[in-house]
């Protein structure tokens, strides 16, 4: 009985001093934008339902987003993107599996802005390539905003672009990520 009381007290104390600095941070409403600039045309699209999470313990970070959920200003552009270039019925998702390299330097229990390299593998159309970028993590009131940008070449991911429209699509597409993570457990 005495032991149980001691264990309960220890557990209560430990719980009381636990901050939101551990565990998993997650969201299903992250933003990814891509932007292609050429002298002929600028093309941009947004996805606001990106599923992503990271582990505060080991820095593992993962993303999954539906290709069909990228919204373009012009419906025809969206149609061509999905049907001709991305073949999004056959390859419906893009995923990223990586690590926040300096997770130990980010104090998730203290408001502030931190940076860390993020390295991992990006898979699009069943092609997996290494990606490295610098992530900016802003901690405020227990929430974590993460921002990062990197460029990718669509031809590296077997995106076939007809010669006729190739001048309209950049071979260095800018990917911008803006995510608000909340603590899960």
């Amino acid at each position: 009985m005495k032991k149980t009381i001691i264990y309960s007290l220890l557990f209560t104390i430990a719980t009381a001093f636990t901050t939101h600095s551990g565990g998993i941070y997650k969201t299903n409403t992250g933003n990814i934008n891509f932007y292609s600039h050429t002298p002929v045309e600028d093309i941009t699209a947004d996805n606001h339902k990106v599923k992503t999470a990271f582990s505060a313990e080991n820095g593992k970070i993962q993303f999954s987003c539906l290709i069909k959920d990228f919204e373009f200003k012009k419906a025809l552009m969206q149609e061509h993107f999905n049907e001709n270039y991305m073949e999004s019925t056959t390859y419906p998702k893009a995923t990223f599996d990586g690590t926040i390299s300096s997770i130990s330097t980010i104090d998730l229990g203290k408001d502030g802005t931190y940076t860390s390299p993020v390295v991992g593998k990006l898979t699009i159309k069943d092609v997996t390539k290494d990606v490295t970028t610098l992530g900016t993590f802003t901690v405020k009131n227990g929430l974590v905003n993460a921002k990062a940008t990197f460029n990718l070449n669509p031809y590296d991911y077997n995106v076939s672009i007809p010669k006729m429209v190739a001048p309209k699509i950049s071979d260095s597409i800018k990917i911008s990520i803006d995510i608000d993570y909340t603590h899960q457990h």
């Binding site: 299903n28 582990s55 593992k60 993962q62 999954s64 539906l66 959920d69 998702k93 995923t95 599996d97």
Partner: peptide, 12 residues
Amino acid sequence: KGLNGDDDLELL
């Protein structure tokens, strides 16, 4: 738009 989430990604 499809099914989001991936069995190969343990966090998702």
